[in-house]
Write a protein that binds this DNA or RNA. Structure first.
Lengths: 199, 199
DNA sequence: GCTATGTTTGACAGCAGTGTCAAACATGAC
DNA sequence: GTCATGTTTGACACTGCTGTCAAACATAGC
């Protein structure tokens, strides 16, 4: 088989992700992507069909990496620590860069309104909720060695509800990051939720 | 003084707000506004300068009305009731219309990046936080007739922190409305927060 | 009625983006 | 080396939007 792709798809995905993250899905044009990747507009259309398909591909990859990171953050045995680590991870992700780049999934959720794109965002949030719920169930059932912290860490609401609340809060933090641009404040608000949730 | 404005500014503000709410700040063009209001594009530029100024004017008016409604929702003596009423009010606001129009301020916060616009959104959130904090302080200090519900309604975190958390949650709900489009689910998540907050 | 003042109008020139396509081009398979 | 196949390229025609402006217009004050 001849007629072979000239560009490095991995690098393209990486660079295009940067553009989408910085400018947002809507505000990013195929022209921007061509400029950032060095691949001609025509080639992008030929290879991917258009912005929606290209973004979906890139976002799915990003979401998988993000969820892997979230899973790592949730590994602590103490639910308070696990939740704190998760929020720290999310906050670090959205406050990276100068100016900070914000939350790609939140921004996309709010502005997209294209079926494939919306579905991808929803899948990511479902995945996040699932992982938080799993962690909360695991640490709450506490069949392993009972640490004194465990007793103080009883959930004030059922784990599934708590997980949804945590996911909702990550979205809220993403919006507040845009409005106030203050990482410390985000951490404080996250800490408040953790306190209210574990009692 | 001659040379008098031909259009009804009140009606224009109302109609333009509808367009901004439906399409979002960025996606709304002066052309859209002209079509929706019946006022020529040139006249809009002449009267307001441009989209940013026009939006700022409209949004400030909207924010004042929204905050007045929030204040009414927060009037209940029982903090649990007041918070529930507030969330119901917010959820009703963003799930109105078919398809539901979402949250104007959240969408604007996430996509805007223009100084005047961002400042207006921030002012609204500050106002909301202030009103929630006032309510929580009022109902917590409870110098009036002690109802049995009052005892159960102790805040699990300081009122100021709780207020910030509540505001953050309203933003989170706005994002989730876009993703899942399910009012009942939003109410459930809000109820979970209220439960975690009042113990 | 006339005038001065501010408003409205439609057109203009310009910019940025879209999606497509035929021709030029590489390259793996033979 | 030739060929078939898929890729790259730059140009094309088009759409939608911007911001400005001179001329036409309406009306309050005199």
């Amino acid at each position: 088989m001849a007629g072979v792709r000239q560009f490095d798809e991995g690098a393209l995905v990486e660079q295009a992700l940067g553009v989408f993250w910085e400018k947002g899905y809507r505000a990013t044009s195929m022209l921007d992507l061509a400029a950032a990747t060095g691949v001609q507009r025509g080639s992008l259309y030929h290879a991917y069909g258009g912005k929606e398909q290209l973004f979906t591909k890139i976002f799915s990859q990003f979401a998988a990496e993000f969820l892997a990171g979230a899973e790592r953050a949730l590994e602590a045995d103490d639910p308070r620590q696990a939740l704190t680590d998760l929020f720290d991870y999310c906050i670090a992700s959205i406050t990276t860069g100068t100016p900070s780049r914000g939350c790609l999934s939140t921004r996309t959720a709010v502005e997209a309104a294209e079926p494939q794109v919306d579905a991808a965002v929803q899948a990511m949030l479902d995945g996040l909720e699932e992982r938080v719920a799993t962690m909360l169930t695991r640490t709450a059932s506490a069949s392993s060695s009972a640490r004194s912290a465990r007793a103080r860490s009883a959930l004030s609401v059922p784990p599934r509800d708590a997980a949804r609340l945590v996911v909702a809060m990550t979205r809220g933090l993403a919006v507040l990051e845009r409005v106030y641009g203050d990482p410390a404040r985000l951490r404080e608000t996250a800490a408040t939720l953790v306190t209210a949730l574990l009692r």
